[in-house]
Nucleic acid binder design. Sequence first.
DNA 1: TACGCGTGGCG
DNA 2: TCGCCAAGCGT
Length: 347
Amino acid sequence: MPPADLLLVWYDRHRRTLPWRGEADPYRVWLSEVMLQQTTVAAVTPRYVRFLARFPDVAALAAAPWEALAEEWAGLGYYARARNLHAAARAVVAAGGFPCSAAGLAELPGIGAYTAAAVAAIAFGEPVVPVDGNVERVTARLFAEAAPLPGAKPRLAALAARFMEQPAARARPSDFAQALFDLGATLCTPRRPACALCPWSGHCAAAAQGIQESLPAKAAKKLRPVRYGVHFLLRDTAGHMLLRRRPPEGLLGGMLEVPGTPWRDAAWTLAEAMPFAPAALPWRAASGEARHGFTHFELRMRLMLAEVPRLSDRAGFEVHVAGAAVPTAMRRLLALAPACPAMREAG
DNA sequence: TACGCGTGGCG
DNA sequence: TCGCCAAGCGT
């Protein structure tokens, strides 16, 4: 078992400065952990700061309408996180505060085993080891665990949990967790790990065998199918556009989109797509195609354009200004449109 | 267990 | 250009 104190000494010298680092407020720790789920530090940092300025505490978040949260989360991806964040904030306010144990935290929506352990360790000092991708990689290498992910997850979690058997780790659960994150992020990286700088290199079975770059092993991935859609952008001379809100669950759930066809495996002919237009108008095709890669398929969208003098509200649609907060897939689609009519006249 | 669920950066 | 990857969760 690698000594916890070696890692903590390294951490005390090399810890990164991050907006949420050193924070023990459970709201802020929770928010940072949710934002960081499958999302890079670089992407999260500005969004975390902006989010806190808008929703400074759990009461503010709980009181906010969904539309405000959707706007704030637009572009960050995995929108179920935002929906669960909202529901959890309301549960926390109703309960009078955050649960202060990993077990209690794990009952909140959007908080799984990892996030529960991370918040419990960082905000409440509970002696638990949060096991994320970093910790899995570090652990797989330390013990030269050859079994591929995701099957090896339980085994790696059990190995990682044993770090907490050491008094040095139990004395500083928050720092120990974040030290593991930093080790995985800066030295024990997926490619070309910097073993020469690693405080645990002398205790690493993979380094001893020279197999660190091939661990952790991963199961083969499936290929991503292509899907197609045609969308209809209706604008007015004031620069407004007609959007609609997607159903509350599923892909891009609760987020704004440009109206259009469903996304299917075969490309659409214009005649097939036209019944999905929000109005009978002289639609013209924008040039080009927007591509966007989702986790499990690649989307190729074409854009049709039409203008009316003035957009008004109607059932099932919403009028928004140009520049409205939309998911990235929609932002790329909208980029196919030339400048709005009013801008054209002005320019 | 395996899949659905976003996005941006990097080699 | 493209596959891989990032502080996962819910079903």
